[in-house]
Design a binder for these strands. Sequence first.
RNA 1: GCCCGGGUGGCGAAAUCGGCAGACGCAACGGACUUAAAAUCCGUUAUCCGCAAGGGUGUGCGGGUUCAAUUCCCGCCCCGGGCACCA
Length: 811
Amino acid sequence: MPEKTYDHNLIELKWHEIWKDQPLYQAEENSPKPKYYVLEMLPYPSGALHIGHIRNYSIGDALARYMWMRGYNVLHPMGWDAFGLPAENAAMANKRPPREWTLANVEKMKRTHRRFAFSYDWDREVTTCDPEYYRWNQWFFLRMLEKGLAYRKQALVNWCPECATVLANEQVVDGCCWRHESIAVEQRALEQWFLRTTAYADELLDDINQLEGLWPDRVLTMQRNWIGRSEGAEVDFEVPGHGPVRVFTTRIDTIYGATCIIIAPEHEIVTQRLSAELQAHARRMIDARANQGPGDVEKEGFDTGLEAINPFNGERLPVWVGTFVLMGYGTGAIMAVPAHDQRDFEFCRKYGVQILPVIRPVDGVLPDVATMKEASGDYGMVENSGAWSGKASADARKEMAAHAETNGFGKAAITFRLKDWGVSRQRYWGTPIPVVHCKTCGVVPVPDDQLPVLLPQQIEITGRGRSPLEEVPEFFNVTCPKCGTAARRETDTMDTFVDSSWYFYRYCDAKNSTAPFDPKKINYWFPIDQYIGGVEHAILHLIYSRFWTKMMRDIGLITFDEPVRKMFTQGMVIRNGTKMSKSVGNVVPADDVADKHGADTARMFALFAAPPERDVDWIDAGVEGVYRFLGRVYRFATRNVGTPGGDGSADAKVLRKLHQTLRRVTEDFDTRWHFNTSIALMMEVINELYAKESRISAKTMADTLRIFSLMLAPFAPYIAQELWAEQGFDGPVFKQSWPVYDAEQAREIEIEIPVQINGKIRARIVVVPGLDKAALEAAAMADEKVREHMEGKTIVKVVAVPDKLVNFVLK
RNA sequence: GCCCGGGUGGCGAAAUCGGCAGACGCAACGGACUUAAAAUCCGUUAUCCGCAAGGGUGUGCGGGUUCAAUUCCCGCCCCGGGCACCA
C-alpha cells in the first residue's frame, strides 16, 4: 500500500465524529471480570482546558485502557473539579447568572474534554451543581445533624475580604486566602456551621497505617502533621478572683519548673479581667501578629498583674499574655517552663522571668541557670519536685497526671491540631444548608421530603460582606416546618469540598433518585483501586473524603473504613519556572496543541517528558519529537500493510525487539508506571523497523504491526485506532485484548560482555546468554586485547558475573 | 528550624537487585533528496589530549566500604515542596 501522510486532525476528528454519540466504554455492573476503579482528580477551576490538565488525563486514561485490555471491568469516570469548581469561582458567582452559564459550560467542556478523555464512562457523569446532587448533600447534612456531627456555634473564623466568605483552616495558606495569595485572612466572630471532623481524629490518624505503602509517604506525613495528635495533660491553675485557668502540657513532669502562666491575647481572661488599656494592648498584639508573615517571629507579651496557683506545690505564678500562645490550640493557655522549653525560655529571658531547672540528664547534673544558652527539652530525672523528685520523666508524667485527676485539678488529655470543618460559606453558589430558623422552635431541619432546597434563579449580586442570598426574600422567607409560623431560611451554603468528599461514590450509581447510592453497587466497586491527582489535595480533599467515608459508615450506608486503596500523586507541569496556571498566565491551551500536533501527541508527550511523579517542564520543541515519532509510525505502517514483504532475514531480530519491548511495557504498566521508558522503547522498535524494513517477511510485518498498534493504544488511542482499521480489523482497538509477549521470541541469542582489567573496560566479548563463570572467564582470557593487558602481570583475582561482566584484578 | 523530594551532556532524561554512565527524545552539526525551502531519510554529537590507533577525566562537593559506586555508608553544599511558635 502507498504511504500516507500523517494528518492528526483528519484522524482524530474522524474517530471523534464516529464515536460522538456512542458510549465508548461502559463499566458493567456485577461483571464476572475483576473490577478496577480508576479515577483522576482534575484540577479544573474554570475556563479553558490547558496542557497542565492533560497530564492527569494521560496517566489515568492510559492506565484505564490498559487495565481494560487486560480484561478488567474498569470504572473510569470524570474527575470532580471539572464540573464542581466553576461554581465556587468568586468572579463567576458575582458576575454571571451561574446556573445557565455552568450547565452550558458543562456541555462545552465535555466536547473539549472528550478528545482528550478517551475512556471515560460518560454514562456515569455526576455534576455537583446538579439539583439531585444538592439533594443528597443536604440529606447527608441532616443525618449528621441528627448524629451531632453537624452543629452551629459562634466562632472566630477565617474571613477572606476578597471572596467575602468564611474559609476553612485548610483553605488558609500562609495567612492568606488559598484563592488570593496576597489577601490576608481576617479573624471574625460569626455563627457558623461545623462538621465534627475531630470526632474521627483518632481514627483518621490510626487508619493512615493501613495506607502505608499504598499512598505516597509525603501525603501520609502531611496528614499526620495536620491531624497533629499530642498526648499530655490538662491542669487547672486557680486564679484568685477569677477561677481556674486550664493549661495543656505534654510535659507535666516539668510542672515544678513552671515560673509563670502565659495566655493567648484572645483568652477570655483578657476581656473579663483586664483594664481597657491592657485589652487594647492585647488587641494591638493580635493585629501585629496577623500582619507578620511566617518565619521567626519575635515573642511579645506583658504581665497582667494576676497570679495563678500551681496546684502541685501552691506556688503563686504571675499570669502573662504572650503572642506565641495560640488560642486555637489546646486551651489557649500554657504553663511556662523556661528551663525545659525553648519558646518559654526565649520569652522568659526577654522579660526577666525566673528560670527554674527541674530535669536532670540521666547521667548529668541540673543545668546551670547562669550559663544556660537554651532550654533542654530532653527527658531525664525529675528533681526539686516534691514527692516526684528522683523519678524518671516518663514515669512522672503518668503519675502526676493521675495525681491531678485524683485531686480534681486536671487529667491526662490528648489534643489535636485538627479542627472541626467549618462548612458555612456566604457565597451564592453551593448547596444551601437545609435548616430553617424559627423564633419559637429554634433551628429546624428541613424534612427529607422537602429536599432539595434549591438556590433562587434570579439573583442580584450587590454588596460584599454577606451572602447574596440575604438579598432574596423569596428564598429566606419561609414557614417553620414544625409550627407553621413565619421563619427564616438559613442563607449559608456549603463549602464545595462537601461535593468532592463523596462524588466518587455517586459515580457508581449516578442516576439513583431514592438514595445517594445503592450500597450493593458501592460494595462492588469500592474501594477505589487507583486514585491519581495532584499533591495539592493532600490535606484538603483527601482528609475530608476520608472523614466522609467514616461518617457514611457510621450512619449505616457502607461497611468499610477507607475510600481509596492506592493513591498516586503526579508532578506538576512547569513552564517558565512556575506551575502552569491561569493566574500566572503561562498556560498552553490544550486546544492549541490539539490543533497543531493532535491530542495523541499532547498526551504522549506528557508521559514521555518525565516519569509521572516528577514535575515536567513544558518545552514546545520537545513535543515535536513525539509528533515525529507518531508520523514515522503512521507512514511505516500505511506503506507496509499488505505488502509482499522481504526475504525475512531480519525477522528474528525484529521480533526479538518487539517482544522484549512488549514485556517491558507490560511490566511498566503493572509496576513502575515509567511510561517515559516504555515510550522510548517503542521508539526503538520503530527505529529498528526502519533500518530492517526491506528484510522483513510479510507475516512478520503483519504480526509486528498488529502487536505494535495494540501496544500503542493506551498512549495514543486515535492513531492506534486508525492503524487498526488500516490493517483491516474491525471494532475499537482498545476493546482488544492486550497482547501477550512470547518469551521464546524475546530471548537473546548472544550478548556482549565487557571485560575489565582492574576495573577499567579493556575489551568486549560476545557470548551466549547464561554462560557460567568458568566458561565466561575462559572466553575473556582468550581475547587478544585481554592477553595484551595481562602481559607480565599476575592475576590476583577474577570476578565473573554471568551475563554481566568479567573483571581481572592484576598486579 | 523540622520533615519530604531532587542534583547525571547544551536541554528533558535513562541506567528496575552494587556490574558497560548518558538509552530515547530535543537542540546543534554534516550528508541525501529538492531549482530552492519545508517535510522526509541517513549519519555525528559527555569532555580533554591525539591525524589516528588509543589514552585520560567525568553522575553537586569531601571522605569511606568494594574487584567494581549515579546506586550503599558518613559529613557537607545547592535547588524545589510541605510544616513552622502546636505547649
